[in-house]
Design a protein around this nucleic acid. Sequence first.
DNA 1: TCTAACTTGCTTGACGTATAGCAAGTGAGG
DNA 2: CCTCACTTGCTATACGTCAAGCAAGTTAGA
Lengths: 234, 234
Amino acid sequence: MAYPTINGQTRSRNAARTKQRILDAAEHLFAEHGFEQTSLADVGERAGVSRATPGYFFGSKDELYQAVLAECFAQVRTAVQQGRARTEASNAPPEAILAGAVGDYYDFLASHPTFVRLIEREALTAGPLPEAIPPRLAAGQDALAAIIDDLGIADHNPDRAAHFLVSLVALCWFPIVHSNTLLQAVGLDPEAKGFDARRRNHVIDLVLHGVRGSLPVDTKSVMPTRAASLGDDT
Amino acid sequence: MAYPTINGQTRSRNAARTKQRILDAAEHLFAEHGFEQTSLADVGERAGVSRATPGYFFGSKDELYQAVLAECFAQVRTAVQQGRARTEASNAPPEAILAGAVGDYYDFLASHPTFVRLIEREALTAGPLPEAIPPRLAAGQDALAAIIDDLGIADHNPDRAAHFLVSLVALCWFPIVHSNTLLQAVGLDPEAKGFDARRRNHVIDLVLHGVRGSLPVDTKSVMPTRAASLGDDT
DNA sequence: TCTAACTTGCTTGACGTATAGCAAGTGAGG
DNA sequence: CCTCACTTGCTATACGTCAAGCAAGTTAGA
């Protein structure tokens, strides 16, 4: 009668595991329904624990959210750092490197839709009004700055580089957020086989042509190796 | 002590005006804080009426939201139609037309940030899970489809056109939603003088180069979205 | 090795607050 | 005076948080 569980068995006690389960459940629910729209009870239910356990481990709902965000940003940072390390080790021509980076970024986002949704909500919460910013936003801002720093941008030619970076992110990001609205409305199915490959190539095309101006670009020599190998994704 | 107001004066009663004020207040608050995070009391306060007046005029919170959405989409539709009419009247070359359309679209979004935020929230609410879709989404889907139709897309070569349209929207859309996160992180200030002009040129550049680069032989055929379909659509 | 004392993991109950919606009231203007 | 425009009062519900409690696990001492 102690720890009633799904099948009536007594559950083993394991703080680390439970904490991680709560974190995972929270990440999914926050991404899917937003912060205010997910209750701690929801999180507990999805994690297979009781109402109050999320609060027990994380103190408050806000702190749980912070923890989720932190974990997400940590993922991105390691991904960015890995990508950068690989780039530095390669002797490929700049265009190939750029194409590879764009492709990698696209693949990362496409395989982490919950992250994208989470950040998108974050961006909307950080409204243009100079209201007192909820403390849960600070972490995100800092992490974002760190990532930008990891990318090694912001040194030379800030404005033009910045616009390109924004465009690049936008092109990869947007179809994920709007997969159920705009994409559907224009007849694109993100679930379709090969969609990600086509979209990725389209983005790379746009960015390379943009970077090169009107100069012709040999697209094929620039394709990342992964473009052909990936049929579908997670 | 019936209708206490800001200055203690008796207020005149005017249903239409009050309704519009409530609608405006709701649009702003929904866009700024999201649906769940704005209470009817907030709307009432901002509109200068009492707690329950929004409910009195619109029945329920959901219906108020629907009304807000409907008004927003109506705005977009008229803007799209006006733009299209102007395009049809012009004899400019396809590239100029495309550039003009992109610029118009950018300007519209830049001057309607609440609309952008509203739709962005909507897109996030329409999660990938096949849950029962809230009725408030239906209006958006319909209006969006109508707009696509107005633009005369989806005729020939739907996939390429669709991807270009998505990219175009993404490039204009993204900086508005992420003005306080990514843009700030990369050192771009959307409030700075001339930012919109620079961004708009950047977007037009990217799109034009992309269009030109992807099908270098025949420029006109690359823009069926705009140039070839102006006269006909379903 | 047995067990009693103690710690940690987790649950249930309770309380305060926010809020959507309803119902009854009240005043203005035709 | 009567209807419409609008208000205040009330209720039900949902949720975050706190506190008490209990069981599983751990350590210390015989």
